[in-house]
Design a binder for these strands. Sequence first.
RNA 1: GCGGGUAUGGCGGAAUUGGCAGACGCAAUGGAUUUAGGUUCCAUCGGCUCACGCCGUGCAGGUUCAAAUCCUGUUACCCGCACCA
Length: 831
Amino acid sequence: MEYNFTAIEKKWQDYWLEHKTYTAVTGSDKPKFYGLIEFPYPSAAGLHVGHPRPFTAMDVVTRKKRMEGYNVLFPIGFDAFGLPTENFAIKNHIHPAIVTKNNIANFTRQLRMLGYGFDWDRCVDTTDPQYYKWTQWIFLQMFKKGLAYKATMPVNWCTGCKCVLANEEVVDGVCERCGSEVVRREKSQWMLAITKYADRLVDDLDDVDFIQRVKLQQRNWIGRSTGAEVDFMTTLGDTLTVFTTRCDTLFGATYMVISPEHAVLEKWADKLTNLAEVREYQAAAARKSDFERTEMAKDKTGVKLEGVMAVNPVNGREIPIFISDYVLATYGTGAIMAVPGHDDRDWEFAKKFGCEIIEVVAGGDVTKEAYTVKDESGIMVNSGFLNGMTVKDAIPAMTRWLEEKGLGPEKINFKLRDWVFSRQRYWGEPIPVVNCPKCGWVPLPEDQLPLLLPEVESYELTDTGESPLSAMTDWVNTTCPCCGGPAQRETDTMPQWAGSSWYFLRYMDPDNDSALVSPEAEKYWGPVDWYNGGMEHTTLHLLYSRFWHKFLYDIGVVHTKEPYAKRTSHGMILGQNPHYVGNVETEEEKQALIDKYGSDALRQSVKMSKSLGNVVNPDDIVNQYGADTLRVYIMFIGDFTQAATWSDSAVAGCKKFLDRIWNLASERREGDAVSSAHEKEIHKTIQKVGQDIEELKFNTAIAQMMTLVNNFYKTAPSRGDIRILLQLLSPFAPHIAEELWEIQGFEGLCCQSAWPTFDEKKMVDTEKTIAVQVNGKLRSTVTVPADSDAETVKSAALADRKIAGYVEGMEIVKTIVVPNKLINLILKPKK
RNA sequence: GCGGGUAUGGCGGAAUUGGCAGACGCAAUGGAUUUAGGUUCCAUCGGCUCACGCCGUGCAGGUUCAAAUCCUGUUACCCGCACCA
């Protein structure tokens, strides 16, 4: 019989859907397991071959958990608000809701085609009003608690998307999505006070099982640093407060720098004798984007303020004040004390502007470079009462001194900024607030949720920085829920990240009209047991959703502080580089490629992209080889956590593996017991596959199954042997496993059978092959009974003819025996 | 600049955590089956050497009876952050 994967896969997909094979039951007595993948953005291009990697991995994990007797929740949904859909809609004059509907239909078809064990009854769509009602509800709760606020501030403005971006969405000075230049604009924006949760977002990482990389990156991004705020008096009478983590170096502070945006400059304007110069510098700084400012990092610029000096509080010395854009207005106090001897940036600035450099920590040569060590090896000098102390001791000593003198408290600062939460776009959740001339910003009453997106005639963007919604005067003009007077709706919408910040909760109770999730469902399913997703979301979605979850915890909606107990991450699937220099023969051709494509030509693998023509479409692979082959290949491709390169020929190898299984099992076999010939390898395979799935080592799990199948070709397997192979294969290739299970006449469904258990005793070898080394080099092997003692191994080794040759005329000075593994004979010539 | 990671045959990658390097797969080669192609099956497959052997896990040292694995130094590439005081 032929392996007709198309018919088989269709048959079982229909069966599973009809019989709701993968339905999760809230409140079941079985232990629960909630496995989560990042729900996809349904783009017009359809599923990318990168999607099946994390999806299949979690499908394998949850299928195994199901067979192990867990009540599994493995849901799917669509994160469907967002700019690409809106842009597509504008270009093709189709409503974004229709575009979304079509895209979701296509994605659904593709996901079903791959045979994932999703509970489709729990599917969510962030653009469904019944869903975004609760996104809006959470925003209102934040508003009521003062965590959502409107502020006018310089924001990142994407010139391509024509809307503002969060800091997290700006990469290398350009928009992470469209690649357009990002400039600064002063705008009034809705903000979410994520910084109020900064401490908890750092501290609670200790209690979750996230891979180290994720924790490090989040800690880094939040950027907590402990230091002190120090007040410096000035000759104009105002106090300048600085933040420093190195208050021990205060005696070395020889000038101060404030950012060009610092408020004190306005106050001092008429006292500065070089105001024109200062104004010019301020204007130049304002014109630069953040990116330009950092680009110029190496070349320090600035202007000395004439007509004012500061006083160093530890020694009373008058020191000059500069403005320079290397001091950021948005971090700390916007002002610093400069210690050129012990800070690289200050040193560079001091060299350029001729400022004094004083050494206060011994150990370096401050005339050559800043000496920045801050451990116990640095000894304080030229520092009054700190002299002789280590830096480590001097920091708390100075902090205490400053507090006693009332010059400033200990202080913790964060790099994390509050989250800019409004977007001037149509296709997002409307922000449910009304602006009343009398009452200010008023939240919509909860019974008016969801606030629906109005139908508009045009989603065309404006360059004025207004949302397309602002043209909808019928919708914009409303009455104030508070005083009943005329008022206007907020016309900005929420960012893409809003809907995904809580979606995993909705899966627990997707049809609830009266709450975003019922307490019973949340208590039963929460937290997510295992969440796998991309590293690119570490400081975006993952951080945002932890923040929202903590807020929901504070208002009693959820019972855990953290949403995800475990977080892992997968590597990207890369494509072959069509411009790779290794693809051509002659040196001239190679050079031509390098001239044309630069260093990109040296890469064998690159991100898949339409322009390179190396995109692999899952539909094509499934048509040619079947979903099971695609699943097995994508799991076999390499280390799950590392990037991997797609290879067409290797896919065929995985098809061959399934063909070989088909040939063994497509006719009913005899013998229900596990055969003695295969017993050992079968138990070993059960152990290895089970363990490897838990450790995300899918590639070696499959390799072990291949080994077992190779053994089956040498000695024919029994029906009992096949049974176990099918069970182990089922999470990876569920369709073929189910079909062969039926052919062999086993009861029920393979995917619902109990995961096989292994017996260590059945795995032990009665004999062991021992490596025999002479002076550390492998010379022979001998076979001895398992667990032989050192003497037995030694005499067996010496009995070996080859070894005997080496030992001849030599003296054995030492013997090392590793039980069941190896013996090493150390020889030296006899005297 | 700071933080993290990676480096093993022609290729993707294994290696029970210090104990027989190269499992498994791809590609390649030879053979069987086949009218032929494809499929399938069997075998070979790190380099040098006719061979005994020698060499071999980015590079240079070191520790050890024994190193892909540990230590010191170094190079290349990848990812994240980046004037955060």
